[in-house]
Design a protein around this nucleic acid. Structure first.
Lengths: 217, 217
DNA sequence: TTCCATTGTCGGCCTTTCCGACAAAAGGT
DNA sequence: ACCTTTTGTCGGAAAGGCCGACAATGGAA
């Protein structure tokens, strides 16, 4: 998995996407480095299951990894700008996935400091606990796309959700980001409620809701 | 419905697709001719249900209908070359559909003479019957995409198919053209057999097979 | 044959995209 | 502080693609 904040060059129409070396080597299928300009086609699915195709090439002096053909289509469709971040990740099935996160628009509070490419580990968790006990500052790597369902949400939203009891048959409305970043609203109904992960997180407040939804035109 | 054999200009990277005037006026939604360069976005589905978007513009001196943006993507994906034909058709629901037919590669026999844009009508059928009785020559407009399931096939294939009895549960293999014109093979099983159209064609040898298929990787 | 409507091809021009050069930035000793 | 590795930005070149000019084509008068 890797995450990169887009530079001006990455988002300009003038060129492609400069892939951090480690990222390319960890995440993408290996290239044939005996060739002068090794390249391959990458296919990555986004959250909606849509496939994006990129030409991945290793070239330049000094050599570096680049995504060329296909990249600008992605940037345009998602309306990405310098400062936004993209994220590539290899699923358990080996399939390549990608997502993006827009730069904080400087609106309200809750702005998280993002560390690139590192999983939450034991020691950083201990550091956080220590920081809390001392009431000092600590950083959080918040990356909802890196794992399936572990989120950080504002405390007031969490508390508010506890007041609400979800039940099968309950109706709701929600919205999703679409390919063109236009806001689309959906309505739906809850069809099943279960524990998120009874083994790893017994008694967790998190619920897993199976829903049936449809697009509101 | 209209069909056009692609010219060198239509398939070159230099420009777009020149739409025959009649075709555009019969088949596409009308443009606002009060504007200097009237244009609109066309959406057309191919056989696989995939949507293609084209900019349809009426411009130039003298004025003519053109497809610009989106056209080259279609040509590239389908790997169309000069001599191939494209076909637009308005479905019963008013929806625009498109398909293409590759130029005969000059391989085997059975090369049909194609008349553009005309439906088979009563009188031409009578002409054909007369021609057969006199053992003289007649032309056939063969266009499998213009109607759902009326095909012309070589006699020997038809006779061979009569020797074969289809049954529910029978396995088969077939292949489809994909977006990139690569050959993809499928295997499947027949799940239902019925008459093609018991009302219009009672006792027809044509069968309607409902199948369940999957892609062979 | 002549005229006219249609449409195929081209040059001009602008944008997009690909490439290595180079330098700035990051990281290690 | 110095050197090495990595990567951001740029100019140059090639390709893509939109435009009307003009000519070739074919049908009608």
């Amino acid at each position: 998995m890797f995450c990169k904040t887009l530079t001006a060059s990455d988002t300009s129409t003038h060129g492609g996407f400069s892939v951090p070396r480690r990222a390319a080597e960890d995440c993408f299928p290996p290239l044939d480095y005996t060739q002068q300009r090794p390249s391959q086609e990458l296919v990555a699915k986004d959250l909606h299951g849509f496939e994006w195709r990129f030409r991945h090439i290793y070239r330049g002096q000094p050599r570096r990894h680049l995504l060329t053909t296909g990249w600008s289509a992605f940037v345009n469709k998602k309306k990405l700008v310098s400062g936004d971040a993209v994220l590539f990740l290899r699923g358990e099935d080996g399939e390549l996935r990608l997502g993006f996160r827009r730069a904080a628009q400087g609106k309200r509070g809750a702005k998280f400091s993002v560390l690139s490419g590192e999983q939450l580990n034991q020691s950083s968790l201990i550091d956080a606990v220590n920081a809390i006990s001392k009431r000092s500052v600590f950083n959080i790597c918040y990356n909802p796309r890196a794992s399936s369902s572990e989120f950080i949400i504002p405390l007031h939203k969490f508390l508010k959700s506890l007041d609400l009891s979800f039940y099968v048959g309950m109706r709701f409305r929600t919205r999703f980001e679409t390919e063109d970043a236009a806001e689309r609203r959906y309505m739906g109904i809850i069809t099943r409620i279960s524990d998120l992960d009874p083994v790893r997180w017994p008694g967790s407040k998190w619920r897993c809701l199976v829903v049936c939804m449809c697009y509101i035109h």
